[in-house]
């Protein structure tokens, strides 16, 4: 066994994992350790595995992932802040046979875009919403998000979120699961190998629901923001497990 050289292993016939070809060549603009990169990859892997890259149209939000369209080599639009579900509805209704998805953060989806989110879900628009919840506004420098936990420090809650003053963190995923228009609602994470595998299965299922024309599929990814939380990526993931998951429990919430 000692005589096996690394060069003997690194051969195309031994390849077990490589980057999906649906990534563009642009390096991701996200901070080291940020969950956005994995979430992007899973969406692209699902699109590639389903063979639907010519049939998919995406909508990027405002927030850290505003440039998602730079990294995903599929046709994409960039929406005004919070309006991605409305844009996606506009697209899906004129191209009912295409796969349409939005990619939105918590500020985009759960604050400024709450109305567009709820109504797209309620209409049962036959598309997929991928919701990245890291409990903070990353892009603008770590301000409180609607999903910021009670007591959690952000740049606009320097002494921790006071629910008396700011209200409670909103559970959008449970909320949209109540609506008859949603056909599949799940919450996952991308911080461990097993979590990533589950998240990918959920995203795949969400896209397949479009084929079945069953309504709106919604997958939340609870993610880290180590820059905004001011932790190392490894510590941020640990903090996420200890603090985010109890309030935002992972799992399948609804499937029709």
């Amino acid at each position: 066994m000692a005589d096996i050289k690394i060069e003997d292993i690194i051969k195309s016939e031994n390849l077990v994992f490589k980057k999906t070809k649906l990534f563009t060549d642009k390096p991701l603009s996200y901070c080291p350790g940020c969950g956005h990169g994995v979430a992007h990859r899973l969406i692209l892997e699902v699109i590639e595995e389903m063979g639907i890259e010519s049939e998919t149209i995406g909508v990027a939000p405002v927030g850290c992932s505003v440039l998602a369209y730079e990294f995903m080599n599929i046709d994409m639009a960039q929406a005004p802040h919070g309006r991605a579900p409305a844009m996606a509805t506009g697209i899906k209704r004129v191209y009912p046979e295409k796969y349409v998805f939005t990619y939105q953060g918590d500020g985009d989806l759960a604050a400024i875009g709450t109305s567009e989110t709820i109504h797209a879900c309620n209409r049962g628009d036959n598309m997929t919403i991928i919701f990245i919840n890291n409990g903070i506004y990353g892009m603008t420098g770590g301000q409180m998000a609607p999903t910021t936990l009670e007591g959690m420090v952000s740049s606009t809650t320097p002494f921790g979120r006071d629910v008396e003053l700011m209200g409670h963190p909103i559970k959008m995923t449970e909320l949209v699961a109540q609506l008859p228009g949603t056909c599949y609602v799940a919450r996952h994470a991308v911080h461990t190998p097993s979590a990533v595998r589950k998240a990918k299965k959920a995203i795949r299922k969400a896209f397949e629901k479009q084929k079945e024309k069953k309504g709106l599929s919604f997958v939340e990814i609870v993610s880290n923001c180590n820059s905004g939380w001011k932790m190392t990526p490894v510590d941020a993931n640990k903090w996420m497990e200890e603090h985010m998951f109890p309030y935002y429990p992972l799992g399948e919430i609804k499937e029709i």
Binding site: I6, I9, V16, F17, K18, K19, G35
Partner: peptide
């Protein structure tokens, strides 16, 4: 790879890598 002989090609590293910078190979001996 600090300890390349120990690698089993399990793909864990590539699975969680946010920037998809890891390519993984595996062979049976």
């Amino acid at each position: 790879m600090e300890n390349p002989e120990a690698c089993t090609g399990c793909v864990n590293c590539a699975t969680v890598c946010p920037d998809t910078v890891i390519t993984v190979y595996r062979m049976k001996i």
